[in-house]
Amino acid sequence: MARFRWFTHAVPEGLPVRQVYGFLFASDGRVLIRVDGAKHSLPGGRPELGESTYADILRRETLEEVTSEITDPHYLGYQCVDDGVSPYAQVRMVASLARVHPPAPDPDNGRTYRRLLVHPDDAGDLLNWGTSGHMQATAAAEAAITVLGLPHRGLPAPSYI
């Protein structure tokens, strides 16, 4: 069984980054959750050839998966996944939603994902990533306030966009 550990420092040299995901915040302080049937996740995915930064990966994946554009991407940390064979990193970032386009199929798999805006306190439960997920959601909520300057009180109810 794989072990997941959350770190807020840079990814150590030699630890491969296999995925980059983002906590994407609307201007009202809610975070976007990608919905695929009953599964909730963050927008993001694997690096592709020619992408040189985590921000580049997150921008592309956000546009492909949830047809949205982002600004101000900031590194939060990484989750180390130790599968017993070859550990790797899943980078987490925080960014502002700049523009949300109508839903469209993901070019990688043809699925159209629903997009749910939720209070950051609810993100950890919806993602169902255990303690590590709650730690990530907490770090993202703090960064939304301190780095992105977004509100944290009096947020609207969850809604699909």
Rank of each mutant, 00 (worst) to 15 (best):
V118Y: 03
N128G: 14
D108P: 00
N109F: 04
E51D: 03
D108G: 03
E64R: 13
S52D: 14
L76Y: 10
D82Q: 06
S52R: 15
D108F: 01
L49G: 07
L42W: 09
V118L: 03
G44H: 10
P103A: 15
R114W: 07
Y88Q: 07
G77S: 07
A89L: 09
Q90W: 02
S52M: 12
D36N: 13
E61S: 02
Y113Q: 06
R59S: 09
P87Q: 07
R111P: 00
T67H: 10
G77H: 04
L126Q: 07
G77R: 05
T67C: 11
V66W: 05
G44C: 09
R59N: 04
L76S: 11
E61L: 06
G130T: 01
T131H: 12
P107C: 08
D72H: 14
L117D: 02
P102A: 12
D122S: 13
A95G: 10
D121K: 13
L76G: 11
Y88N: 09
Y78F: 15
P47C: 05
L63I: 01
A89H: 09
P47N: 11
S86D: 13
A95I: 07
G84N: 09
Y113V: 04
S86H: 13
D106Y: 04
D106N: 15
P43S: 15
G44F: 08
L49T: 15
D122M: 09
K39Y: 09
H119A: 08
G84R: 09
P103F: 05
Y78D: 03
G50W: 08
D72K: 13
S96F: 00
P107S: 07
D108K: 12
G84L: 05
V100G: 01
Y113P: 03
A55M: 02
R92C: 02
L117K: 00
R115I: 12
D108E: 14
V66L: 07
D121P: 00
G45P: 06
T53K: 08
T53C: 05
P105F: 10
S68D: 02
R60M: 05
I70Q: 10
D122N: 08
E69S: 11
R59Y: 03
D72M: 06
E61V: 01
R46S: 15
V118N: 04
P107R: 10
L126N: 11
T112N: 06
G84A: 06
R46Q: 14
D121E: 14
C80P: 00
A98E: 12
P120S: 09
D36Y: 05
E61F: 00
K39P: 00
V91K: 05
D121T: 03
A123D: 01
Y113N: 11
V94W: 03
P120L: 08
I70G: 06
A104M: 04
D106S: 08
L97G: 03
L126R: 14
L42D: 09
R92E: 13
I70N: 06
G130R: 02
Q79E: 15
S68M: 14
P87H: 08
R60Q: 10
G110H: 08
I57Y: 01
Y88G: 04
H40K: 11
V94M: 03
A55P: 00
